[in-house]
Design a protein around this nucleic acid. Structure first.
Lengths: 243, 243
DNA sequence: CGAAATCTTGACCGATCTCAACTTACGTGG
DNA sequence: CCACGTAAGTTGAGATCGGTCAAGATTTCG
């Protein structure tokens, strides 16, 4: 466990009693959808139960098989969650940005992690133990509803992804992924890929080579245009979706 | 919606006030892990908020795209939940036996179903509306913890399945599936497949033909034996798992 | 600026899908 | 309880999508 260290940097002068989450007022907690409906005092209470950790790029936050008893909330940076199969193949499950959390499985199952969590860049997380979180869930039932909402969302996403990998061709999966990237009123149908093509390949259950080829094909067919900086412009959303 | 009908059959004489769940004492509710830790009066209270429906084999309980506001609890029979892709391919997500429930996604998302639910045999379900369930979740916070536990379990399963479909060969997926079927101390390593090979193919993201061939291969290699009645005997679990 | 990672392109190959024909199992009603 | 019809399962031959290996181009970042 030598590759993780407590974050004692930039403490704003005020020592808040040791290991608590060290960001500005309400820190990560206020970022998190499951907590941000609470009163300030309640957030403070929960915040005082958190510990802050930081990880450098590439460091492993937890491994499959390790037992877990904490929820991890990203306050700064980026974390990828992935499965690793026997033969060494990596399957990217999701990417956590500030406000996202992980560790939920072991939280309620009293079990070991199924996946790996790795810092993609220098990252800070706040952690809260299962025991403490469960106490808050009982004390403030509204938190449970938020967590349930978050879980059901995630479950829907995961099952959709399973179905896509199981039934769609790589080309279709890419098209659907690109379509998912737009949403939210991007008028110009242009956006930045949220990850490298290598990671995208892992997420979509294919290889970087195939991703590269399919993107090239789609560009040839006038469906998309690849711009510098991982930016993609959708030229023909219609055509893309009936692949 | 003409293919569903309220179950008014076999009412044991005692009219319990209309449309409530019509099974024997505590009915489906007492079967369900998320409720069965409650006091009897509490179960009765919740039971009175449920409605009972029955479906004949092959009837659709809900479709993707329909909006949902109810949780469905299976009290008798069997339901399959599956995605349907544009090109008509079916992906089996899970099978519900008595005590299992579905509809949870729309329950907290206030959204539409992503999947289809179909009765595999004549089936009875109890339903409870989102609004009412949310009331109970607030009133009895312990239920939330149970639901969270169930969700996290299901999420873990779904993510594991995604990873398998994305990174493992069909042969390995079958082997892992068979291994999953054992668990629970089956000394003789013999069990009945929980579904048809056709459905298994859909679940594992492959075709019936491939399933058939791979089973035959595994039998040739002395790894398994196929018995009548969908029963499988694992002869060499070791060998199976290092495929 | 340079090393390392990412990305691209080509050639080849193989796992698995598709289509088709046939066999077997099952449940349904007479 | 059997016969029949339909669904499930099997087996073969052929086609192909996408993975692998390899070499080179490009980007990123310290």
């Amino acid at each position: 466990m030598g590759n993780m260290k407590h974050s004692n940097h930039h403490h704003h002068g005020r020592t808040c009693g040791g290991d608590h989450c060290d960001l500005s007022h309400h820190s990560c907690i206020s970022l998190v959808p499951i907590f941000n409906h609470l009163e300030n005092e309640q957030m403070d209470e929960i915040m005082n139960a958190t510990k802050s950790l930081s990880f450098k790029k590439g460091e492993i936050i937890y491994k499959a098989g390790e037992e877990s008893d904490s929820l991890y909330i990203v306050s700064k940076g980026r974390i990828k969650i992935y499965h690793l199969s026997e033969n060494g193949k990596e399957q990217l499950l999701r990417i956590l940005d500030p406000g996202d959390f992980t560790g939920e499985l072991a939280l309620f199952k009293e079990d070991v992690h199924e996946a790996y969590a790795e810092a993609m860049v220098d990252t800070n997380v706040c952690t809260i133990t299962r025991k403490e979180l469960q106490g808050y869930l009982i004390k403030y039932p509204s938190i449970s509803l938020k967590v349930l909402t978050e879980f059901s969302q995630r479950l829907a996403t995961s099952e959709k992804q399973t179905a896509r990998v199981a039934t769609e061709t790589v080309e279709t999966r890419i098209a659907l992924f690109l379509a998912d990237c737009i949403e939210e009123g991007d008028e110009d149908l242009e956006f930045k890929l949220p990850m490298s093509k290598k990671d995208l390949a892992s997420y979509l259950g294919t290889t970087p080579e195939t991703i590269s080829r399919k993107f090239a094909d789609m560009e040839d067919e006038g469906l998309i245009r690849q711009l510098p900086q991982r930016r993609i412009k959708i030229l023909d959303l219609e055509g893309l979706l009936l692949l």
